[in-house]
Computed example of a mutant assay.
Amino acid sequence: MASAADRRFMRLAIALGRRGLGQVWPNPAVGCVIVRDGRILSRGWTGPGGRPHAEAAALARNPDVRGATAYVSLEPCAHHGRTPPCCDALVRAGVARVVTALTDPDPRVSGRGHARLRAAGIEVEEGVEADAAHAANAGFLLRLTQERPFVTLKLALSLDGRIATAGGESRWITGPEARRAVHALRACHDAVLVGGGTARIDDPDLTVRDLGVSHQPVRVVASHSLNLNPDSRLGRSARDLPVWLLHAAGLTPPAQWTATGARLIGCATRGDSLDPAAMMSALAQNGLTRVLCEGGGALAAGLIGAGLVDELVIFAAGKMIGADGRAGLGPLGMARLAEAPQFELMQVQRLGADLCQTWRRR
């Protein structure tokens, strides 16, 4: 039976694991805390690129953990991949007890880690703070169970729901504090996704800036016909920082884009647009677990309409643009209000002169 101390140390392990979000894909972002007699002996979390695993990182910091309890936010791996099994490392280290939050759905693990620990005489407690651990690693879990990443949709809107003036001017609807928060959002996602229209009009970099990060997300553009300028900022930087282009399957990519070094990924279509489910499946197949979509309106509507937006982050500025401005969301084709996708408000915070609202899909 999990104690209050078990729950407290597991919450710490989950928080440590979250440090790896955006850096460890396709691996999960796991945290590990090793405790003996109420004292923390060591702690670790998944390293950039997915290695070392959290348990190995914690044991490397302090291998003297005999008789201790290891709190791990995901079942220790039981297979030989690029690293040896973490369950074997815990057995060799002589821990007496392992507390986990979730069973790993990866078929190479899926209960085998827990079984090997028990076979070695180690006490195992499962399911501690499972909801919090599930939320932290929702992208990894969705990729394995539904073959899609966790999707966050970010919208920067005026009070009347517009993302730009009628002429397309959008810089800047929100203030510097909100824009800095967007860069923090990019940093904890594996990739940033925009539609072809946004790429053409804004010519964005889609990088994390001014936060001192050592990694950058994959920049992804969804463009049915690849009518994009290879001399754009994305095209010029594709060899230095990854750029993936989603396009209609069967399309022959322009030689100019092939020459930039961008990865070109064909997807099934739905009418004249890329199929949202096919796009997300393609990204998951290429290892992505967390994707931040930054628009435009048609892409956002397509993802929402397909039920693929898990989290909605809205930055609202105290400006009014009017009905002639560009709407933040394209048509959803609803006939009745009961058909409207529903989200639950999770958090509201003030960022300078703007508001940031976080909503989760019901």
Rank of each mutant, 00 (worst) to 15 (best):
G167M: 08
F140M: 02
E177V: 12
F150N: 06
G167A: 15
G197S: 12
L155E: 09
K154D: 01
S170V: 00
A199L: 05
A178V: 01
A199W: 02
F140W: 13
E169I: 05
L159Q: 09
R148K: 07
H189Y: 05
A136R: 13
V182M: 12
G196H: 05
C188N: 06
G167L: 07
E177K: 12
G168M: 06
A133W: 06
E169V: 12
T152W: 05
D190Y: 05
V151S: 06
D202K: 07
I173N: 10
Q146G: 08
L141F: 13
V151P: 01
E177Y: 02
W172V: 00
N137A: 13
E147D: 13
L144C: 03
I201D: 10
R180P: 00
G195Y: 07
L153D: 04
R180V: 01
L153Q: 14
R171P: 00
A156Y: 00
A138W: 08
H189D: 00
L159I: 10
R143D: 05
A178M: 09
D202A: 15
D160P: 04
L157A: 08
P176C: 14
A164Y: 00
R186Y: 05
A138K: 14
Q146F: 03
D160Q: 13
R179T: 00
G139L: 11
D203Q: 11
T198H: 10
W172M: 03
A136I: 06
A133I: 03
H183P: 07
E147A: 15
A138E: 15
G161Q: 11
L157T: 14
A156D: 06
T152I: 10
G139K: 11
L155K: 06
T174F: 01
R143V: 02
P149W: 12
L153A: 13
R162M: 10
D203W: 02
L193T: 00
L153T: 03
A166V: 05
E177S: 13
T165E: 09
H189F: 02
A166K: 13
R179G: 00
R148M: 04
A156I: 02
D190S: 04
D202G: 06
L193C: 03
V194Q: 11
G196I: 09
G167D: 13
V194F: 06
I173P: 00
E147H: 13
A184C: 02
A135D: 15
L157Q: 14
P204W: 03
A184L: 10
A133Q: 06
G161D: 11
A191W: 07
G196C: 07
A135Q: 15
T198Y: 06
A187M: 09
I163K: 02
